[in-house]
Design a protein around this nucleic acid. Sequence first.
DNA 1: CGTTTTCTATCACGACTGTGACATAAACAT
DNA 2: ATGTTTATGTCACAGTCGTGATAGAAAACG
Lengths: 204, 204
Amino acid sequence: MPKQVDSEQRRAHIADAVLRLAARDGLQAVSLRSVAAEAGLNIGSVRHYFDGQRDVMRFAMRSTIDRVTARLERRRESLRPLSELTRDEAADQLTEFLAELLPLDAARRAEASVLVEFLVAARVDQEIADLAHEAMRGTLVLARRITDAMARQDLLPAEAVALEAQRLAALLDGLSFRSVLQPEVTSEQECLDVLRAHLTSLLR
Amino acid sequence: MPKQVDSEQRRAHIADAVLRLAARDGLQAVSLRSVAAEAGLNIGSVRHYFDGQRDVMRFAMRSTIDRVTARLERRRESLRPLSELTRDEAADQLTEFLAELLPLDAARRAEASVLVEFLVAARVDQEIADLAHEAMRGTLVLARRITDAMARQDLLPAEAVALEAQRLAALLDGLSFRSVLQPEVTSEQECLDVLRAHLTSLLR
DNA sequence: CGTTTTCTATCACGACTGTGACATAAACAT
DNA sequence: ATGTTTATGTCACAGTCGTGATAGAAAACG
């Protein structure tokens, strides 16, 4: 029997409002009142589903991380093993895969913008520090899986795996950072070209 | 005859307070009142030397950009031309040079933290958007000078200069970003190792 | 000296913020 | 039906903010 309202759905709806606000006007513009207005709700309703502002923020950040993680996981399942591919095919496939993390369209741009805002805010906000840590480790772990796979195909010396993972993670974050903040300096096409070039050079 | 107070020195003193606050507690914690307290001044004094909050912010960001630029320029003058160096020496020299941009000690960490805060804030704050644009173009121009010099020594194909500049700029920003936000995931030593590895691979 | 400019300090105002408290209403349970 | 949980809405409070206005002290000037 259905409840009057689906609380989980409501919480997701509110989190969406947070993300829209944060992407458009920055985290600074996210308050309980602005979130309620953006979600078309009363501030009392927002407070009914969350313990307070911190809870809202945590949930919104948690949702974003989970969404990106799930999308990457889904993509990962349809990846063909490196051993079946030529170097060019491998570069293409990895580029397309990692491009999920780059702000190459409106949706991914909003996502990346929000993540940058959250990660920077977490530097001085212990309330979300653990989520930021998880997110940044996640990027590194993802990069590490890729360099690991390359090493298994003898495309990379085993002792370079850790360092190349850090390099790839830094490149991904740097591209995302620059393209989110200054798309006119680092365009979508340049992001993609740089990523492909990097992966190609790794596979040489 | 000396004035009662040196206004330029006062403005610099206030800007320092802004930078300390922004580095320690984030840009969110920077208000006229907190800045005055951090500078050991009355809020009225701060307002005497600046038109308002925006003016303070602009001046603080301007100061930071100018300081980094001046330091790089000073370093640049003592660089030996690439033609006189072996590949290893060139990699060492460029690593040391570009390390000025990385948060490898307390001073550079504070600087990089503040810059990240400012750049992110500028995404939704038109008041400092031009300074952010200048800063991010600056990194790219710097990277471009390096890849240009490499191409002149036939270490890089001419058509790769622009793309490799973007790649180097993204790597620098990514390393800075990651090390500022999560030094326990991307340590100082790893920053340096990754940068050196990247430059070495470019010089091959 | 007096006058003027520079500097410091304080108050008040309106606009925000998160949150505690509470009233109302709607859906559900018994 | 009554009672109970769930949900929405409203008010008030203390805190913060930037800023306009103003006053008083201190230094510089004539």
